[in-house]
C-alpha cells in the first residue's frame, strides 16, 4: 500500500526496464537520492561515488521538477556532456531527500549497468 501522508516521503521511480515502483524515503534519510535508490535495490553503479561527475544516476523528472532544489553548477556541467540529457534531466546523487520529493516521479536513464 502506498502511503499518502507525510509519515514517509513517497517517490515514484520508473526503472530502466519501464517498471514503476513506489519508493518510501524516511524523513531522516541522510543519503542522497542515488544512494537511497541503490539501497532500494535499483541498479546504480555510481562510478564517481556520488560527486555528480559520472552521470550513472542520470534521471528525468517526469513530475515535480519545479519542486526540487535547483541543480548546482557541477550538476549542470555534467548534464551538459550527456547525449541524452533534456530539460527534465537531473543527477540523483545531487538531490538530497526532502519533503519536496513526495509524489515526484522520476525515470532512470541509460542502460542497466549490470
Amino acid at each position: 500500500m502506498v502511503s499518502t501522508d507525510f509519515d514517509q516521503i513517497v517517490l515514484q521511480v520508473t526503472d530502466r526496464l519501464g517498471q514503476t515502483h513506489a519508493v518510501n524515503i524516511p524523513h531522516n534519510a541522510e543519503l542522497n537520492l542515488m544512494e537511497v535508490l541503490k539501497t532500494s535495490e535499483f541498479k546504480m553503479r555510481a562510478t564517481c561515488g556520488g560527486m555528480g561527475l559520472c552521470a550513472d544516476c542520470h534521471c528525468q523528472v517526469e513530475e515535480g521538477l519545479d519542486q526540487l532544489p535547483p541543480p548546482t553548477f557541477q550538476e549542470l556541467e555534467t548534464l551538459d556532456t550527456l547525449p541524452d540529457a533534456t530539460a527534465k534531466s537531473r543527477l540523483a546523487c545531487q538531490i538530497m531527500p526532502g519533503e519536496y520529493l513526495h509524489h515526484v516521479s522520476i525515470q532512470l536513464m541509460g542502460k542497466d549497468p549490470y
Binding site: R45, T47, C54, A55, D56, T81, P83
Partner: peptide
C-alpha cells in the same frame, strides 16, 4: 565527432570465461 565523455563498460572481460556476478 560526438564528444560526450567516457563511461566504463565491462567490455571483453565478459568473454574470458570468468565467473561474473552483477558485472563484477
Amino acid at each position: 565527432v560526438p564528444l560526450f565523455g567516457l563511461t566504463p563498460k565491462l567490455g571483453p572481460i565478459a568473454n574470458w570465461g570468468l565467473n561474473l556476478h552483477n558485472a563484477a
